[in-house]
Each structure stands twice: as structure tokens, then as C-alpha cells.
Design a protein around this nucleic acid. Structure first.
Lengths: 181, 181
DNA sequence: GCACACATGTAACAGGTTACATGATTTT
DNA sequence: AAAATCATGTAACCTGTTACATGTGTGC
């Protein structure tokens, strides 16, 4: 939301790791970052222009090896400064997670509501699927043994996402068990 | 977000439980619902007008007992229909939870990054505080024994919120332990 | 009398989604 | 030849935040 604009930080953070095109960034959001952040490509290109006008990134347009014209962005000293200041700051935003299923539950007052069973079963299916997807991601990115050294922060948050999703699944399982007693 | 407008559903759900003024709704968001949804009063009044123009709620303005003029809203048959259809539907949105701390971690590659320790300690403090707040809420709303019968859905989601926050705290504790080894 | 809670709105703006738009290259 | 992916943008619209605005009732 408006409140705190974190997209610039994500873009600066990704560009710091090496020059990127808008399309590169879009791809990263679809795979790696997609687990915990989402954004549309239209927004990315807009924000890149804005960061450029703030002189926090620089653009290099041309034909790099192939035939397609691309615009690569690189971070400037100003951009690095902004990124580092943000990472070291403490005023992290605690946003509420807007979960539609949880909201529905709030309006179900009775344990024997006939709609409850179906909603729970469906949510369980979805959440279980997401959990498996996250576990697979960990295997792909960090291998079977979980080599956390090579990218510590990323390992930690993937681990966090899995544990959170596991907790969600456990919670649903317990409710379903109680329903069937 | 634009994506899926859930505010109308929340308002309909709350108004269905009995006539409410915009201010009543604002208060509910500040306390009960505040744990898992947030909205500003300006948005509430706007949305109420919209629901009224859709004939999903009806307004009754006047002086009720006291001297202050209030506008009470009541749900209509059309509103009930929309609400019930939503609750019974399966196409729940799975939104990503945009957590600023988690995002920062993503950009910390090295386990021995000097900034890590302070960030972890601060986040631990905040999350622990939130966990205690949630536990207190459960005691206030459902008592020491946890009488889940009186408002099943609400009990479930408060329980879910507590378990999720507990998992967050455990995760941070483990990282801190590993840091100090 | 003053502060705080009650009570209801409007307006400007920022951020994000959806749709529109275009064209090149690679894969099937 | 067609479909998919690469690659980059613009425009309309909606939601939500922030700020502005106003007035009443209650407790100290």
C-alpha cells in the first residue's frame, strides 16, 4: 500500500547484485521473490524510470551481443547509500496479512455450520499444495542437505515460509479432526 | 489492493450482526478485527455509501436516545445474498504477506553480516510483544479456559494468529542461537 | 474551560491492477 | 507457420492513505 513504498528497495537490492533489465527483474519476481512479494511488470518499468530520475540507478541502452535492444540498469553511489540505510534501519512495518479464508472464518459463528467442512477441505488442499511447492523450491535452490552458507538470508526466509505454511496446514488438520469427532 | 475488494464483505458481515454506524465499524476495526485487517475511517464511510447505492444496506438517520445524530446501517436481502454467496465460494485469494523484515533478510547474503545481530534482536522484541498482545486478547475474549463454543470462527483465527506468531518467534530464536554459537 | 471520545465526511495523492499496445526472437 | 517467450512501455481505473474539516457530548 501507499504507507511504505518498498518496491524501490527491492529493485535497488536486486540491481546491486548486478546490472539488470526490467525484464530480468520481472523474471526474478516471478520465480525467486514471488514467494514473498508480487508486482506487475508495468509497475517495475515505472519505478525504474523513477529511480533513474532520482539518480539512484543509471541506464545503459544498447544491443548486448544479440539483436534485441535492452536497457540495463546499474546502481549508483546514491542508490547504494539509500539501500544500505534502509537495511540498517529499525522502523520495520508490521503489516497485517489479509487472508480471505481467515476473514470468512470470522463470520462463521457456529461450529456446526454446514459450510465449514467444505471450506476447510478446500483450504487444506490449497495450503498443502503451497507447502509442497515451497519445499521443492528449497530443494532446488539449496539442495537436499540445505546448504545455507551460500545465501544465508534467502535460506532463512525460505525456511520461515515453509515453517509458517506447515503451521497453517497443522492448524487446518486439527480443525478438521475436531469436525469429524 | 485492487485485485479483490473484501472491504464490502467485512462491512456486510458486521452489519448483518446488527445495525451499525460508521463509527461503530471503525471501532470494531480498531479492536476486534484489527488483528487481521486494517482500514481507515475515511474508507469505511465511502464504502458504506457505495453499499447503500447498491441497495445492499439501508440507512436510518436520526437521534437515537441521545442528542447526537447518527446513521445506522442495516443489511438488506440483497446484501445478505451477496454475503452468503461470498462465504460459500471457494475462490479464495492467496495473497503474499509483505513482511519488511523478511525482505531485508533476503538482501543479507552473509551469515556474519555485522548488521544481522541488531536487526534480529529488534525484530525478536517486536514479535514477542505482538505474541503477548495476541495471547492477552484471547484471554480477554475467550477467558482462561478458552471457551471456543461461543464464537467458533473468531476463536479459530485468534488461535491461528497466536500459533503463527509463536512460530515467528521460535524461528528468530533459533537464528539468534546460531548467531551466538 | 479543556481534553478526549463521539461522529461524519471531503479532497488530494500515491500505489497497484488491468487492459491496451507493439515488435523481435526463439521454439515447436 | 504458429506459438511462446523476450522486451518495453502507456493509460484508465480502483483502493487506500494522508490530510483537511467540522461539530457534539462527556469527564476532569
Amino acid at each position: 500500500m501507499a504507507q511504505k513504498n518498498l518496491l524501490p528497495m527491492i529493485l535497488l537490492g536486486l540491481i546491486q547484485q548486478g546490472p539488470k533489465t526490467g525484464y530480468d527483474l520481472k523474471k526474478i519476481f516471478e520465480t525467486e521473490i514471488g514467494e514473498f512479494w508480487s508486482v506487475k511488470h508495468s509497475q517495475i518499468y515505472l519505478e525504474l524510470k523513477r529511480l533513474q530520475s532520482l539518480e539512484e540507478i543509471e541506464a545503459k541502452t544498447g544491443f548486448f551481443g544479440n539483436k534485441i535492444e535492452k536497457t540495463y540498469y546499474e546502481i549508483t553511489d546514491l542508490g547504494i547509500k539509500r539501500l544500505e540505510e534502509w537495511i540498517a534501519s529499525y522502523d520495520d512495518l508490521l503489516s497485517v496479512s489479509k487472508d480471505e479464508f481467515v476473514l470468512k472464518l470470522y463470520f462463521i459463528k457456529d461450529k456446526n455450520d454446514p459450510r465449514l467442512e467444505d471450506l476447510l477441505v478446500e483450504q487444506y488442499r490449497i495450503r498443502k499444495e503451497k507447502l509442497e511447492h515451497l519445499k521443492q523450491r528449497r530443494r532446488i535452490v539449496f539442495g537436499e542437505i540445505g546448504d545455507k552458507e551460500k545465501n544465508y538470508g534467502h535460506f532463512l526466509i525460505l525456511d520461515h515460509a515453509i515453517r509458517r505454511e506447515q503451521e497453517y496446514v497443522n492448524w487446518l488438520e486439527e480443525i478438521l479432526d475436531e469436525q469429524n469427532r
